[in-house]
Design a protein around this nucleic acid. Structure first.
Lengths: 217, 217
DNA sequence: AACAAATTTATTGTATACAAAGTGGGGGGG
DNA sequence: CCCCCCCACTTTGTATACAATAAATTTGTT
């Protein structure tokens, strides 16, 4: 069984990402002990970690609350993502193993299958997409890069991008995945970086369009 | 008075940065309670934070120990720094206030004065340099950028770069500071980014030279 | 009725006690 | 003599109790 603090972390994180804890929702330690069935000590650790990852905000003597992406400069967040994941893809191109490339292909196929079934808005698809990106970052072989990337990809907005795509955008995204794999096979760092950069820029464009559409004005 | 957990954080961090806790040194919670005069609870919080910032490493049920920079890919660390601080400088160029520019000038002057006094290897000089970089990152007006930057600038190696410079390298660094200020005055994002990139590349070159010199093999 | 001060209440911050897991050393068996 | 297992000890993980701080409410006054 997972330790109490990671259990608490995972539960609370899931509540935030799923949206059951909406932005601004206060994260009261005593309430969370009931939800997670652990004592306040591991709950506090989980909260500090979530704050560190940007999923929650914190004021001293007042506690944590769910972060509001609306407060943030989305352009900055996505610029950082292009820089960091682009660099990661470039590094990965010359370091990734055959086994990892195979994993990427499996995930790409899985996502394409889910799309064909109309299941592209499901958590399963979001998970596959996350793993795809994660494998690339791990293939870059830099612990520091991994922790830095954690700060820009592990946000509800990013994790739910797939759900915002139109059919065209979704197809483009699938093709990006395939092209990334091709770049890795060719061991071409600049190619991989370029595709990854486009992949993230496209995601940002979709999000901006989606946000404008939902709240026009 | 600062809260117990930040007090613990600052004390332990100082021990690590100063080198009194060398790489690999185990950070035993009970020992640290004695050093920081607080209980284990805030000590644990401080340790988790240091781990998050990459100053310490952690294994479950075994605790934390001081991170060893030798374990790390320095090229990756410095590439990330150029990307992140370069981007920060570019953003800052169009957002920085007059007051902040004035602060930068004051710090540049202070560092130049310290150099003239031969006091450029002191913690005072290192502090001024840190503040210089921090003001720029804050002027970029992105909380996310700030936290990401924390992961790549707050490392002992980076914080003690000044002490590694030769006379020439030091002078070049001082000139970079002045040129950055000029770029900010001109509100020229690309200029600022270029100078910052060079500034960090130069630092990396100095470190690499210094490391090779000290342990030739 | 509106404002301000004081009191209560809710919540976080810290300390300590206990439980679990890991580590190393000593004794017994091969 | 060496290896392995078991026991004692060290260290981390978790729970709970207490202290301090901030927020809300009430009460008194104007």
């Amino acid at each position: 069984m997972a330790s109490a603090s990671v259990q608490a972390y995972e539960i609370i994180r899931q509540e935030i990402i799923s949206g059951r804890f909406p932005p601004g929702h206060r994260l009261i330690e005593s309430d969370l002990t009931a939800l997670c069935k652990v004592s306040r000590t591991p709950v506090r650790e989980a909260l500090r970690r979530l704050v560190n990852e940007g999923l929650a905000e914190f004021s001293p003597n007042h506690g944590a609350q769910v972060a509001d992406p609306g407060d943030e400069d989305l352009e900055a967040l996505y610029e950082l993502r292009t820089l960091i994941e682009g660099y990661g893809a470039a590094r990965a191109a010359t370091r990734i193993s055959e086994a990892e490339i195979a994993e990427l292909e499996a995930l790409a196929s899985q996502m394409e299958a889910l799309v064909k079934k109309g299941a592209d808005h499901t958590p399963e698809a979001a998970g596959a997409n996350s793993r795809f990106h994660r494998i690339i970052l791990e293939a870059a072989r830099s612990a520091r890069l991994l922790s830095v990337a954690g700060l820009v990809v592990e946000t509800p907005l990013v994790l739910r991008t797939l759900a915002r795509y139109s059919a065209d955008e979704r197809d483009r995204s699938m093709r990006h995945h395939r092209e990334l794999i091709a770049a890795f096979r060719a061991r071409d760092a600049r190619w991989a970086e370029a595709v990854m950069t486009g992949h993230i820029k496209a995601a940002f464009a979709a999000i901006r369009r989606d946000l404008a559409q939902r709240s026009p004005g």
